[in-house]
Design a protein around this nucleic acid. Sequence first.
DNA 1: CATAGCTCCTGACCGC
DNA 2: TGCGGTCAGGAGCTAT
Length: 283
Amino acid sequence: MPELPEVEVTRLSFSDRIDGAVVTDVRVGKPLRWPLGIEPTQLLDRQIGGVTRRGKYLWLPLRAANAAAPPISADAGGLLMHLGMSGSLAFNAQPGSPGAHDHFDLVTDRGTLRLTDPRRFGAVVWSAAQSEGMAAKLLSTLGLEPFDAAFDGDYLRAALQRRRVAVKLALLGGDIVVGAGNIYACEALFTARIDPRTRSDRLSRPRCQRLALAIRQTLEQALALGGSTLRDFRDAHGMAGQFQLRANVYGRAGEGCHVCGAPIRRLVQGQRSTFFCAGCQKR
DNA sequence: CATAGCTCCTGACCGC
DNA sequence: TGCGGTCAGGAGCTAT
């Protein structure tokens, strides 16, 4: 579910409020994708730092209680969180009793951070540092951040040249550029006027330029609109996103293209739906 | 190594 | 109302 914009909107909605809070209790519900990797009691009395994001992962630094007040560094130990397909985080003073899909509560002196995730593809995993253990393993395969200055047409071209898969699948892989999931990969390819089935190594330089730009612009616009709310996405304040109202192709099979009027088509790539306009998007 | 397919899990929706 | 089939925003793992 949550792609980069939704994860970033979530982060922005509670990072400032939780920064500096102290953990007073931890509640673990049904198993998520991986075990927590630490005894919950080991998290008590730790102080939380500002939340950062890498791809669709969030990193919550947790400074040890008895450390002699060292500044919170990037390698202070903490929780790596992922929202999977159906996860969302809420940070509330009065969270209420946990529902059937509330699988992790981090109770602090400023409120409770609660992960709600019906499908449980999400994760909350402890690492002694971002650069160690599970966090290091999961983060090490990630491609560039789309807003990184190094992510440009030349970089994208070089990376796509090394693959033979359909360009849509290359984008979803996350090892070239992170953040564009099924919705935004479809939308970016529409904006760049590229057929999602095009083999990645057949894309010309100018088209890669257009695609890199389209990815950045699509994610930027979605972020500005608070992300997409398809079923139940909410930020940590409970606000719904608005991007889905602007979608050009995603979820619009059979409807007319906003640009040329041709019916939007749906096909399956890598067991996932792809939406595109055969009039606007060329191989 | 790159690639294709499978997998985890629950819920919504549709046709019968 | 019930039942079976399909689909859903992710991405790691395993065979080939």
